[in-house]
Every structure is written in structure tokens, then in C-alpha cells.
Amino acid sequence: MKRKYLVGAAGVLAAVITGAIVAPQAVLAAKGASMVEEGKKIAFDRKKGNCLACHMMGDGASPGNIAPPLLAMKSRYPDKAKLRAQIWDATTANPDSTMPPFGKHNILSASELDKIVEYVWTL
């Protein structure tokens, strides 16, 4: 699982490096798209983000109803850093939050978190 993802990341990196020489813009867009896709995978993975346990989000199947559906994120969180902070440790904003502190407790790595933020921002 993890290895696959590493290979994937390496692939992205390689693509970026080679691409940077050829067509920077197109590659950047492609990189963004694959970040979003990977973010979605991590968000839906029960052993990783498992966001669906609590949130309705995107086309994820059988979501829980503990938390508000994740919608219109870009307009609700114009500042991406705020969104990241919520996912990093939700108890900062709400001490009684049930949402696990994904960043603070190393549930997700920094790069996994970044990808999830990219994905959630598209919702």
C-alpha cells in the first residue's frame, strides 16, 4: 500500500522533473490533478483518512453522519492553511471535536495531509 504510494509519488516527482524542462505549465496542472486523486484515495482509505466514517464527501459510499457534509470548501475556506489546520488538529478550533487530529497525532504524514487538503478543496 505504502510502497505503491511511494512509487506513485516518485513517479510524480520524475514527471515533474522531466516535465519541467519541456512544458512546465501542463505538468503543473497534471501534478495538481494527481495530487487531488491521491488525496481522494487517502481520504477514503479506512486505514488512512477514513473521513467517510463521519463525513459525507464526494461520491464516497455509505458515509457516517457524525460530522457535517464537506461541501463548498473553496468558498468556506478561502485560506487553504485554515483548512489544513482543521484537519491537522480539529480540537484547536473545538476542544470537544470528535474529529481525530490527523496531523498532530501522525495519523497521516505531512505529504498525505497536503494531498487530502487539495482534494477536499475541490469539494
Binding site: 479506512r46 477514513n50 467517510l52 466514517a53 463521519c54 455509505s62 458515509p63 457516517g64 453522519n65 457524525i66 480540537t91 470537544d96 470528535t98 481525530p100 487530529p101 497525532h105 501522525n106 495519523i107
Partner: peptide, 21 residues
């Protein structure tokens, strides 16, 4: 735990809610 729940988080705060299924 890593997920940072108390017993109360599930059985009081969220009693009646659905966690995944």
C-alpha cells in the same frame, strides 16, 4: 489512543449517530 476518542465521544456525544455504518 491515536484517534483521540474518549468513551463519551462515542457513547454520549455521538450516541445515535452513525460511525461509518
Amino acid at each position: 489512543g491515536q484517534l483521540n476518542f474518549s468513551c463519551a465521544s462515542c457513547h454520549i456525544q455521538n450516541a445515535g449517530n452513525v460511525l461509518r455504518t
